[in-house]
Design a protein around this nucleic acid. Structure first.
Lengths: 170, 170
DNA sequence: ATGAGTGCAAAAAGTTTGCACCGCT
DNA sequence: AGCGGTGCAAACTTTTTGCACTCAT
């Protein structure tokens, strides 16, 4: 995954830390920010990379402080984090749901390479405008979107590439 | 699912029937259009509705002529149909891949209602142009895209709706 | 004879859930 | 006492695969 700053990319106001924001959301649902959930949020927001449930479980299992979290708890937390608007599912990869941060991170879409799986983020303001426009003409209240552009990244589309592979994750 | 004709929507040339097109593709792969595959293509192209593997299996099981096809064969055929460019995966619904016809059917995207699940198709030529442009600036060879716009359809966004529900498919 | 194709049942793989125990973020 | 939360293992879903047999698009 590669992230590229784009001039004019909208910035996002963050007043609460992800953990606090999550705590607030949980409170509205009559739930608590437990030690486990806090650990998960910390781990999730420690990186801006895309990830799936399995990778997150792996990262959590490698923590040196003793804050372990079970797989079930991770799955349950991912659902809540998504509902809370802190994460969003961006795609499917290797038959797994792929998540990315959706809090304190500007909206963007992805170019996904069919060959190496690389996900290139991009932001295009016209896109949002068009989507709004389309919604309007259909009386549809747009709340969000997900755009995956599939094709070949520059490395993989070069005929004599030195194999830009990585799709074969054991 | 609702389809609406949009002025200026690109038409698509169909010279071969879906079955013939599939036969041609299969030939290039050293495979044959068997009775089972023909039955599947016929069933798939009998409707323009979105569908998932399970629904297709169900439809096939209800045929009155004795042309039954096993579930495995359906899954295998869906993959080939996708590779052949006759079908494409458009979304996930109820944890299942959702397919739609991609042959003899103009390119389009979807507005998906979060409440009732309705999928409204639309086509916007500017969108394709922007996507091409974005790809170009990233040296990315665009082969296709998938855009899901989530929100509330007009019926569901009316405060005093008479419930436009249908998301509860057992 | 050849080799792709099929159906069945079993296996994968990701995700969800029942349940007993825990602990007060 | 109350109740949400956790971990574990079992269950569940969708999809894939091994295999023996079939069939000839």
């Amino acid at each position: 995954m590669s992230f590229e700053d784009v001039p004019g990319l909208p910035s996002v106001e963050i007043t609460l830390s992800p953990a606090d924001r999550f705590r607030e959301y949980l409170a509205t649902q009559g739930m608590r920010l437990t030690q486990e959930r806090a650990t998960i949020v910390e781990e999730v927001f420690a990186s801006h990379e895309h990830f799936d449930a399995d990778q997150l479980v792996l990262r959590l299992s490698q923590r040196t402080d003793g804050r372990r979290v079970s797989r079930s708890t991770v799955y349950r937390a991912l659902t809540w984090l998504e509902n809370a608007g802190l994460l969003r599912k961006v795609a499917r990869n290797n038959d797994r749901d792929v998540y990315e941060l959706d809090y304190g991170y500007p909206a963007h879409d992805h170019l996904i390479c069919k060959r190496c799986g690389d996900m290139i983020e991009f932001y295009n303001p016209e896109l949002a405008a068009i989507i709004e426009e389309v919604g309007r003409t259909h009386g549809f209240r747009v709340e969000g979107h997900r755009l995956e552009v599939k094709g070949l990244c520059s490395a993989c589309s070069r005929p004599n590439r030195k194999s830009h592979r990585k799709l074969d994750m054991i």
